[in-house]
Design a protein around this nucleic acid. Structure first.
Lengths: 240, 240
DNA sequence: GAGTGGTCTAGACCACTCT
DNA sequence: GAGTGGTCTAGACCACTCG
């Protein structure tokens, strides 16, 4: 499987934005010129630009041109994209993340879990509660349910590292879709115990369902962070 | 300006999903068949399906077909999409939303606001603090900065209603891009006063910059909700 | 092998913006 | 009018999944 041309083109253009070949607020060469230079059709260039536009690197104005958006002032390294699949280890770095396994069980699913993972009451699920540490400090409390039939042979070795990595590289499955709900909530007893939250520390909670590319729900989980350790970021561009 | 064909096709397909013509987990007709039936090229059908896929209505599997994702169990009417531009009135209903104007001033921007709105220190900005009520109950405290030069003649009449509506329909400007940061935080004196938050009620905060389609930043704002009145939702599908 | 979606092309025409 | 991006077509070939 060779990489699609439009992805290559997108990477080239992205690099040119990063290295300053194309400056913020300045127009790129027009699509036809890029197509000629890069030896592809104009549509392929447009497809690359469409993707970069959705990612927030540039914007287009019909009749005018394509422009580099430039730096986003409120963006920081600290920001977690709310629309990315990579696990914590991939996102922050394998070395920095460790996991305490608080609970690891196989059970029959509750009605809520049945509904969220589209399971029968007789389909077993894993229940995993992990405290994930960032450079040894408590960071996020993850409570995860996964269907056993989709994730065979889960064990403590996997849980100590990255479930995400196991699912992708060992099982060869791909995440396709996610629905995530973000809210603030009060600290529970668990939050106080594991996240070292104080009584009145707000918690930032993310509840999500993740589907594989084949449409099967593979994960229902809740992640809780102390309010002062994380935020989520959403980038929007175009509705369609 | 006539509507693009792929948008019409998308709406047709979306309606068929909604009315049950295409059932959850079931495949749609293949792209060629849809193209024939609807009298467009296959690429136009694909473009429509791509959009519906990004919106989370369906998923495609190369070699297999296009399938309806079906209901999302954790989704509720209450959910606010974190990737939508419409103002509160458009989203929830004009009748239900009222606004108390707590502060409305024209001033020179602080350094932070200069940076976020890409302004010089001599470019005046509006500062608007509004408590927006949902059926008379305090709902969200919005603190907004906008460049005067982009939004002329803002007045209390506009602020009582929808700034969003004014910008779009009266000024003819279009929002293009938004960067939003969501976090939990502790209640401030303002939150207690206006949102009727208790001392230990968490606050769900959204900080954002919005750009017009021409690349100009038009709004820097912060919205605060009491934790029990709102959540934000992010739907993810495909990275590119 | 048959059927599906994914990519890519060349060419055409349209809509928009500025001069 | 000139230059830009947006849409659309017909046709081709590829990659993937299943029998």
């Amino acid at each position: 499987m060779t990489e699609a041309k439009y992805l290559k083109i997108a990477r080239i253009i992205q690099n040119r934005i990063k290295d300053g070949t194309y400056q913020a607020q300045e127009p790129l060469p027009d699509q036809e010129a890029l197509a000629q230079e890069l030896g592809v059709s104009r549509l392929t260039v447009k497809k690359a630009l469409d993707g970069l536009e959705r990612k927030g690197l540039l914007y287009k104005q019909s009749g005018l041109g394509t422009f580099v958006l430039g730096d986003i002032p409120i963006q920081t390294d600290h920001d977690t994209s709310a629309s990315v699949f990579s696990g914590l280890q991939e996102e922050i770095g394998e070395e920095k993340i460790t996991s305490d396994i608080i609970k690891f069980a196989i059970e029959f699913p509750s009605e809520q879990v049945q509904k969220n993972l589209r399971l029968k009451s007789s389909d077993p699920v894993y229940e995993v509660l992990r405290l994930r540490r960032l450079e040894a400090n408590p960071f996020v409390l993850e409570h995860t349910y996964m269907p056993v039939k989709l994730v065979p042979n889960l064990d403590e070795t996997v849980l100590k590292g990255s479930i995400y990595h196991y699912i992708h590289h060992n099982l060869g499955l791909k995440f396709g879709t996610a629905y995530r709900k973000i809210r603030a909530s009060k600290a529970t007893a668990w939050d106080k115990k594991y996240l070292e939250a104080k009584q009145d520390d707000p918690i930032l909670e993310l509840e999500q369902i993740i589907w594989l590319t084949n449409g099967h729900p593979i994960e229902y989980s809740t992640s809780r962070n102390r309010f002062d350790t994380r935020n989520y970021v959403v980038f929007q561009n175009k509705d369609f």
